[in-house]
Nucleic acid binder design. Structure first.
Lengths: 331, 331
DNA sequence: CTCTTCGCTGAGAGCGCTCCCAATGGGGCG
DNA sequence: CGCCCCATTGGGAGCGCTCTCAGCGAAGAG
């Protein structure tokens, strides 16, 4: 009735527990005949190793945690970033036959869980989109399992992380605007306590400065509404701007709405470029020129980096994934 | 250096392993003095129970799996449904201090994992948005851990599931259109191998029939593009329709684009109602009247149902969560 | 032909925890 | 005053697995 154990498989195959264990774990050092007999027994009983028993002795759990702040998911709303990451992580973990444990850090209880769980429940932690001042990273790092961050941590040195080339992507976007003849290029920057917000602004500044232009900066929180509000303010302060680079597609969509409300034509009067390349960008009015970032790949790469760390490779170099400008109609 | 064990806590507190175990698991049947001493020892050593050792003997893992088909996440794209569910599940699981294990079923390897993992790795399985012909449900159900479905399974009788009132929501929407004086009301239905697609169409048919109208049905796959294409076809076949109820907001947004392209004014010429109430609906042009469904709550309720099952309650009645019509400008 | 080597297999000791059962002692009751 | 009961505690077995180590026979070397 209940699940078969190694012992039963061993009895059926007429060998010892140890031999069955060897076969189940790859079969090295077992003669072909015995190996086949054991495999047959395993199949006939439908044996599946008990992970608890295994991890009790190996001290590995073969599962890794993905830690996200719930507010992240919430703030982003329509932004499929979160789902993309999960998809990438999940797909890549499948290859190494590890489990994905999802943890949330918003409530105090949640953070507490993260702290407890990461000690013995998982072999490693994937930390995603934490704000710069997040004490969680330090706490995690001090305490044991290896940590890989998604996005460059703002204040933590000596970290393993995977990031997309936010700075370069922003630079490319602004550079494109300048080459297209735009004169007064503003930006709607994201939150400055998140690396994506900071780096995209940095890229903007670099491009603007390189061409001797003046930086015109407004701030949002990556959300659509904040983009709309920021565009509104920008239009009031700098009526003659002719381009705006937005730190996220959602903010760009908001900016588009604001520009439409003010009767500015896009891209004729004002060019708009976003960042992320979410689905909505394609269907925006007009379709949004934006910087594409490979979100699912970010998830995959985090797992790959973790795998390397787990297999003893150290130090591990940070990885930065390329971004690329996708030209549509808004610029 | 390494993690402290029960034994060490016991030694420090001057009691036996059994007593420490009792305290750690609630402290019933332990005198107050001893309990405090043990708690102090636990804190001072930073003791955290080893879940593998625990689950080896209790035969519980205190973790439950959320099984989603990756294609689901992919098809939905901008649809935050998936993220919402995860959020709800995660938040509710936190309360009972259980882990969330995420599994994906798209690749053959993934399905295989689901089959293996669900045997000893998790106490229960939450199955979400599986298509009607999905053999996974039967496989899971036959084999052991309790299963709770998100969305009424199409072909599986005698199931524990939580669903939103798709039929009722659709009915309300169409009923509203009729009362608003619309004469020729079409629908763009979702895929008919998913319960949401079927039930929303059923609600539409019920309302239309009740008022003696003719059903005008086109089909999409819940995606924006499919909605746009379906609207296009509908307009060709039924040029004088004056309302359309869409099985998803994304399809409604597509329909809006199609109507705009054909020069039909919304809601003046054609009223449009969607389903889901995603963020985009609010920002559609015009803002979309839609049927709100409580996605995060769906996740929570699935967990609650699972908790009840796990604590021995049986049979468990299916739960249907209410939907409500949100009036905006498109109808 | 003997000794060493090597490939394969089995025995056994735990991993850290829970839980059953026995032991202990103090208090209430007859 | 003796006995029983109950609340509290400790002892010990064992969950299913891995892994070290020893044993064994066959094969190769001298």
């Amino acid at each position: 009735m209940s699940r078969p154990t190694l012992e039963q498989v061993a009895r059926l195959a007429g060998v010892s527990r140890a031999t069955v264990s060897r076969v189940v774990n790859g079969g090295a050092g077992v003669s072909a005949a015995v190996r086949d007999a054991v495999r047959a027994a395993v199949d006939s009983l439908g044996y599946v190793p008990n992970p608890a028993a295994r991890s009790l002795v190996t001290r590995r759990t073969d599962s890794i945690a993905l830690v996200v702040s719930e507010s992240t998911a919430q703030v982003f709303g329509d932004d499929p970033f979160f789902a993309d990451i999960v998809r990438g992580v999940s797909a890549e973990l499948e290859l190494s036959d590890k489990q994905l444990v999802l943890l949330t850090t918003d409530t105090a209880a949640g953070r507490d869980r993260v702290r407890r769980y990461t000690s013995a429940h998982v072999d490693g932690v994937l930390l995603v989109s934490h704000h710069g001042n997040d004490p969680l990273y330090t706490a995690l790092n001090a305490q044991g399992p290896p940590v890989v961050c998604g996005g460059r941590p703002l204040y933590a040195a000596n970290t393993s992380y995977v990031d997309v080339d936010n700075t370069g992507g922003a630079y490319k976007a602004v550079d494109y605007l300048i080459r297209a003849g735009r004169r007064r290029i503003a930006t709607i920057a994201g939150p400055q306590d998140m690396n994506a917000g900071v780096d995209r602004l940095t890229g903007y500044r670099a491009a603007v400065q390189k061409h001797g232009r003046r930086a015109i900066v407004a701030y949002g929180d990556f959300s659509r509404d904040s983009g709309q509000a920021a565009m509104h303010a920008l239009l009031a302060d700098e009526p003659d701007l002719d381009a705006v680079f937005c730190g996220s597609d959602l903010m760009a969509v908001g900016a588009l709405a604001s520009l439409r409300a003010k009767g500015r034509r896009v891209p004729d009067d004002v060019a708009v470029i976003g960042f992320d390349d979410i689905q909505q960008a394609r269907y925006a009015e007009p379709p949004l020129t934006t910087v594409h970032q490979p979100s699912p790949l970010l998830g995959r790469e985090m797992v790959r980096m973790m795998t390397r760390i787990l297999s003893g490779e150290v130090p591990v170099e940070p990885v930065t994934l390329p971004t690329q400008l996708v030209l549509r109609s808004s610029a």
